[in-house]
Nucleic acid binder design. Structure first.
Length: 895
DNA sequence: TGCGAGCGGGG
DNA sequence: GTGTACGCTCGCA
């Protein structure tokens, strides 16, 4: 019979004769889980033989064949393939040992592909991808080792299909019973008292069920005699429901490992994956913990959100994340109250039950409603990685994707670097220092005479790689006639000689992305969502190829490649700047990596748009290869403080009207250690400067704020600084205001001590003590009519950020404070640059208020930039507007 | 300005 | 499992 299914997971087991059998877990189009066995594939790797090889081979009885092959090596351009030996074994687990013996004895010159997981060896060779569709010619296999229908396959082949089959989701959340809430939980002694489960689709008509380790029945609640019975039922439910996806908040480093420990404690089996011969495992690598349920996929929204460069939260606890993304909150239970609630009256325990239920529910909602998985499904299909392995870093994705390409083109893949080599690379980089992208020196100050145009290079680094054929396999290593040399001095063959694998992959990825975006427009519903996730995934992966070549742990770490790309980037921004200034009546006033901002004398946004489009067209025509300069947007006025810190008054024509908005990059208006007054005042000052060009007015309004501060007229809420208590008070060594306040509060009210995780708001009051001793509870201040320390708020809170802004428009601190020399006043009254009410030739509709969400993302946007060395089209361009709408990613305007 | 330590989520 | 995996913020020099 023929079986067609979407591939969820792959593993293998060893048969009696130590021969491997591959197991493919999947779901058919109708949603049935299946497992397919394939036993006609053996592990192998390549060696570059030397004169000792022939003698060494017979010593290894595990090697069943040594076949002469010719392959291209991964790094450096070669005219002809290199003779290699392909060594085939039977047991994948023998590979590392034999590989190491060959290397230690120098029985070969080099080893290739001896560090590829057997499942991936199989997938690459059969060209089947994670979440891709597979066709198997098979018969029913009688086996008790697998909990879903099993088949024995004669043939395995990929099927072209982009659709996704329906998946079954189970979210779980456990509650434990601590003996001492101040100490960490000990899974040996502290029992699990509840397991909350949420199902999608429903399980026996229920979408929620809480298992409780005591006799407590209720709606969607099931009580048990003890923990052991509860755990046994948990195992039964997983078996019966048979979820594809198991999720839960921080499930990888808490719930699942804890459950495993408690199963062990009761001598219950750990087998709640889809196989009975392999337990669920927990592995910790450094700080990172991961659990695996064979045949299922563990999804941890916490880990996904933490690693997502597009969204930032100030905290990553479930409550914060759920509030921001779902507009829902956890129920109100304090950790230290759990023993009391558990031991207490029925209502109290029920409250804890509902608390657990809500947590499981929120996790499931995060994954499903916020479509956290969608992009990863597509990343899986594109890279080939199994879905489970898509959640870790970008490097593996690029690497696996390239492995499929290497195989197709008769290349072998480079070995993973040893720890030693990684250290060496890291040191080398530190010593030499890596040259990054160019940030043009900004023409500081306010630009208000005409509109500022923002133009961006589209997918800069991918375009450079394509335009100049930059790849590990086009790099000229040993002085062959250079086809062309990059500004950093490395040479590459041209496309006519050989198209590089990376440029060719990039072309495919970028074309696929355009196609997906185009298709999206005419699609709706699931198909459209899939296409959107797909184009985001394609963008992610194309933008990470450049970074991969400069990542110390990469198999294909080739600094000549990485450096050439950035070198071309730097050259490009400089030459384009010159080209623009030579060809158009504009002045480039700023640029960063892949963006150029230019000043015009045009006050009419419509005309500014026309010029922007003309520049884009003309310059793109003149640029080499695939480089394209896109017109992004206009700022009617533009204020730049320093590199990476600026604000612009943006105008967009949308739905028949002009809409405006203040955009800020790198100017922080929200910071945890600032009080709301700072954010408010900073924003206001920028607003006045950009929209009215009236610096005097900005100063005056700032002075008013300072006056009010001195008079004590600013409400305490605006002066409250919030900081969290992250650990026990005793463990804080130094003195910080919020800790001092916490201690004070505990003395005042010992019955309700400050707990870890609490966020304390405080204001700084007048006095002679150390600053941190003068943190006080705003309520207390109000009640006792205590004066706040206006000096502190002026000099430590307000002035530092605002001074930076005013300095950029030529205002000194003494001027702001009104204590400066009199000539300053004259300057203010007469100086033309101080007053320039600008013309706006359009009717402006009131700016739309951003909802809380977008505001958060906006703030984040600049941050995420700082961290992504090169995130592609949106990197530091100043044109990145992220809104979280429906899907995990983002809407990136103009991209 | 640059570096090292420390923390995260969960209960 | 043909394994070996952080990344940021804050405090201090």
């Amino acid at each position: 019979m023929k079986l067609i299914f979407q591939l969820l997971d792959v593993d293998y087991f060893l048969n009696g004769g130590k021969k491997p059998t591959i197991r493919l877990f999947g779901k058919t189009a109708s949603g049935n889980a299946v497992c397919v066995f394939y036993d006609k594939f053996l592990p192998y790797f390549f060696i570059k033989p030397n004169d000792k090889t022939a003698d060494a081979l017979p010593a290894h009885r595990e090697i069943v064949s040594a076949e002469k092959v010719e392959k291209f090596l991964p790094i450096g351009h070669q005219q002809a393939p290199t003779p290699l030996l392909k060594l085939t074994l039977t047991n994948p687990q023998d590979v590392p040992r034999i590989r190491d013996t060959f290397l230690e004895n120098k029985s070969c010159d080099e080893v290739f592909e001896a560090d590829i997981l057997f499942k991936y060896r199989f997938m690459v060779d059969f060209n089947i991808h994670g979440m891709g569709w597979v066709e198997a010619e098979c018969t029913i296999a009688p086996t008790k080792t697998v909990s879903v229908p099993a088949y024995h396959a004669e043939t395995i082949a990929p099927v072209a299909n982009e659709a996704n089959t329906g998946l079954k989701y189970l979210a779980l959340d456990i509650e434990c019973l601590p003996t001492d809430t101040r100490r960490p939980l000990d899974p040996k002694n502290n029992t699990i008292i509840m397991i909350a489960l949420s199902f999608e689709p429903a399980y026996r008509g229920q979408t929620s069920l809480v298992l409780v380790a005591k006799q407590l029945q209720g709606k969607e609640t099931k009580g048990f005699q003890n923990e052991k019975e509860m755990l046994a039922e948990f195992l039964t439910i997983i078996d019966t429901y048979d979820p594809d996806i198991v999720t839960g908040y921080n499930i990888n480093s808490f719930d699942l490992p804890y459950i495993l420990d408690r199963l062990d404690a009761h001598r219950l089996p750990r087998t709640f994956g889809r196989v009975k011969d392999k337990p669920v495992f927990a592995k910790k690598i450094g700080l990172f913990q991961e659990c695996g349920l064979p045949g299922r996929v563990v999804v941890d929204p916490y880990q996904i959100l933490r690693r997502d460069p597009w969204i930032k939260f100030h905290r990553y606890n479930l409550n914060t994340v759920a509030k921001e993304l779902l507009n829902e909150e956890k129920l109100d239970v304090v950790y230290s109250d759990i023993p009391k609630l558990w031991a207490g009256a029925r209502e109290e325990t029920s409250h804890l039950v509902e608390y657990a239920r809500k947590d499981a529910d929120l996790s499931l909602k995060l994954v499903i409603k916020k479509e956290l998985l969608d992009k990863f499904l597509e990343l899986s299909k594109i890279s080939g990685l199994l879905l489970q392995d898509c959640f870790s870093g970008q490097a593996t994705r690029v690497e696996t994707m390239l492995m499929y390409e290497f195989k197709k083109r008769n290349f072998v893949m480079q070995a993973r670097p040893s720890q030693h080599l990684v250290n060496q690379r890291t040191k080398e980089r530190e010593k030499i220092g890596i040259k990054g992208a160019t940030v043009l020196e900004p023409k500081k100050g306010l630009h208000a005479e005409g509109c500022t145009l923002v133009l961006d290079f589209r997918s800069l680094y991918p375009s450079i790689m394509r335009s100049f054929n930059i790849s590990t396999d086009t790099l000229i290593l040993n002085g062959q006639a250079a086809s062309h040399t990059s500004p950093s001095g490395a040479s590459f063959v041209t496309q006519e000689v050989r198209e590089g694998i990376m440029p060719s992959v990039l072309t495919k990825l970028l074309d696929a992305r355009s196609a997906a975006k185009k298709l999206m427009k005419s699609e709706t519903g699931e198909k459209r969502k899939m296409l959107n996730a797909r184009q985001l995934a394609l963008k992610d992966i194309s933008n990470s190829i450049y970074g991969y070549t400069g990542y110390v742990r990469a198999r294909l770490y080739v600094m000549d490649v990485a450096n050439s790309i950035t070198a071309y980037g730097r050259q490009n921004i400089e030459t384009t700047k010159k080209l623009i200034e030579d060809s158009f009546p504009v002045e480039v006033i700023y640029g960063d990596t892949d963006s150029l901002l230019m000043k015009t004398t045009i006050t009419n946004p419509e005309e500014a748009y026309k010029l922007g489009n003309t520049i884009s067209r003309k310059i793109s025509d003149a640029l080499p290869g695939y480089l394209e300069l896109e017109f992004e947007k206009i700022y009617r006025t533009f204020l730049v403080l320093t590199k990476k810190r600026y604000a612009g008054w943006k105008f967009v024509f949308e739905g028949g009207v002009w809409k405006d908005d203040i955009e800020m990059k790198g100017i922080e208006t929200i910071r945890r250690d600032w009080c709301p007054l700072v954010s408010e005042t900073t924003k206001h000052v920028i607003d006045v400067i950009l929209k009215e060009g009236d610096i005097q007015k900005a100063i005056t309004s700032l002075r008013e704020v300072l006056e009010k501060l001195k008079e004590g007229e600013i409400p305490l809420e605006k002066l409250t600084i919030v900081k969290g208590i992250t650990r026990s008070l005793e463990s804080y060594e130094g003195i910080s205001p919020h800790i001092e306040l916490a201690r004070k509060l505990n003395t005042r009210n010992p019955s309700e001590p400050v707990k870890i995780g609490d966020r304390l708001g405080f204001v700084i009051i007048k006095g002679n003590q150390l600053l941190s001793k003068r943190a006080e509870d705003p309520e207390y201040v109000r009640k006792h009519n205590i004066s706040i320390d206006s000096e502190y708020y002026i000099y430590s809170q307000l002035l530092p950020p605002i001074e930076r802004i005013l300095n950029a428009v030529g205002v000194s601190r003494s001027e702001v404070l009104g204590s400066g020399r009199q000539t300053n006043i004259m300057d203010i009254l007469t100086g033309t640059k101080r007053k320039m009410k600008h013309t706006i030739d359009v009717t402006v509709r009131q700016p739309q208020s951003l909802n809380g969400w977008e505001g958060l993302v906006c703030k984040t946007c600049s941050k995420s930039y700082r961290r992504m060395p090169l995130a592609g089209a949106c990197d530091c361009g100043g044109d990145l507007l992220i809104s979280y709408h429906g899907s995990m990613g983002t809407k990136i305007i103009g991209n």
